[in-house]
Design a protein around this nucleic acid. Structure first.
Lengths: 225, 225
DNA sequence: CCACTTCTTTAAGGTTTAGTTAAGAGGTAT
DNA sequence: ATACCTCTTAACTAAACCTTAAAGAAGTGG
């Protein structure tokens, strides 16, 4: 699966870096902003999967930012977790009322932070009724089961091969260059040489036959229509 | 859906009334008890959908009450949320170990209380969606009795192994990653390392054979279809 | 048809992930 | 108290997977 992006908004640089470090270690992509205004601008530009928002900030405080985001059509469905210096019931209630999805008090335990983030993301994922089953040509790619079916036969591809196939198939017909594939399947900040894509394509062809993924020389690969 | 009933057990009458008021406003039915004993009696009589339990109480304290409930076949699957005067890591851990499902510290924010209650209920609803008796392959998993039957043989799995098996079996075919399993079987706010899942899977395989739970490397586990 | 670029294929090595074992902390039952 | 469970963790092993480099094949443009 492609990496999920988290926007962290906090005016304390040190904390920002600490959180970034921990989130990246968990495999998230991280965006940083140092005040509410900047945060909102960044959210609009990058559509992160979740926003982690400090309440106490200059320029525009966290609560205001929550309000802003909830008013904005583009942003209103992005989950928000608020951070605050100490447990402050009043603010907390206010935050939750304004539309944040969870609330964490400093000092932050990293484990707790990560698990809350994942819990919130999962809750949102479950809401989306996206089908995880693709049927193309004579094969079925079932992402719930991680199985590819082809004429009664089951193929259990390793994760990267499966994700690559799934991604190509979900964009059937469109030519995707190697960099795009790397970004979407491997993740934005992961550096691997682009030949890696070729090798995976080869493995897929080896298993399923070569009539599914087409090479477009000089550009990339395409799942045949 | 019919109204869900919540049993609130607390010796402070004022708080009891306050909570009742707020729960009713949210559309719950409310039962009240003023000590552990009374609470348990009431739980047996009315089978509430959730119990909200103060830890500090005369007669029988909250932790004892949790224990009692977890031992009782009728009551053992009713979710419990504990209330306590202040954050106390030790008691919290103890409470969760004894089998409560969540933990809230006073003073209580109404919003938070409601949202935790709904979260816990949601988790349990998901579990209850399926019948308590699953028949898959040649085994029967009976969650009313906590027994797995396999060709005339009975297997009494420990709680966690059982719940894990049950959860996997109830989502037969779907690959579930470790984090999801931890959250659904162990609970959202409980932090254990994900290798714990592996160990439990191993124990299950050891007892029932390894043809039920499949590993999907890099992703998670799946109950074979 | 030659030179050049881009892809394919192979195989090895390194990394990541899962399996396994054992030990310790708690709890429970005798 | 003692022995026995259950759950969790750490540490080691084993295996699957991913990545890379490099050599050969296939296209492409002059």
């Amino acid at each position: 699966m492609a990496k999920q992006t988290i926007l962290v908004v906090d005016d304390e640089k040190d904390l920002l870096d600490l959180i970034e470090y921990n989130l990246r270690k968990e495999g998230f992509d991280v965006l940083k902003a140092e005040n509410g205004e900047e945060g909102i601008a960044m959210a609009k530009e990058h559509s992160p999967d979740l926003v982690l928002l400090d309440i106490m900030m200059p320029k525009m405080d966290g609560l205001q930012a929550v309000e802003e985001m909830r008013k904005d059509a583009e942003l209103k469905r992005i989950p928000i977790i608020l951070l605050t210096a100490r447990s402050d019931e009043k603010t907390e209630v206010e935050g939750l009322n304004k539309g944040s999805d969870d609330y964490i008090t400093k000092p932050i335990s990293t484990t707790k932070l990560i698990s809350r983030i994942k819990a919130v993301l999962r809750r949102f994922d479950e809401k989306e009724e996206v089908s995880n089953i693709l049927e193309v040509h004579n094969i079925t790619i079932d992402r719930d089961r991680y199985i590819v079916y082809k004429e009664e036969e089951e193929f259990h591809l390793p994760r990267k091969e499966f994700e690559l196939l799934f991604f190509l198939a979900s964009r059937k017909g469109k030519v995707l260059d190697r960099q795009t594939l790397l970004n979407k399947v491997w993740g934005d900040n992961i550096y691997v040489v682009d030949r890696t894509v070729d090798v995976h394509v080869r493995k897929i062809r080896e298993k399923l036959g070569d009539h599914y993924i087409e090479t477009v020389k000089g550009v990339g690969y395409r799942f045949k229509e």
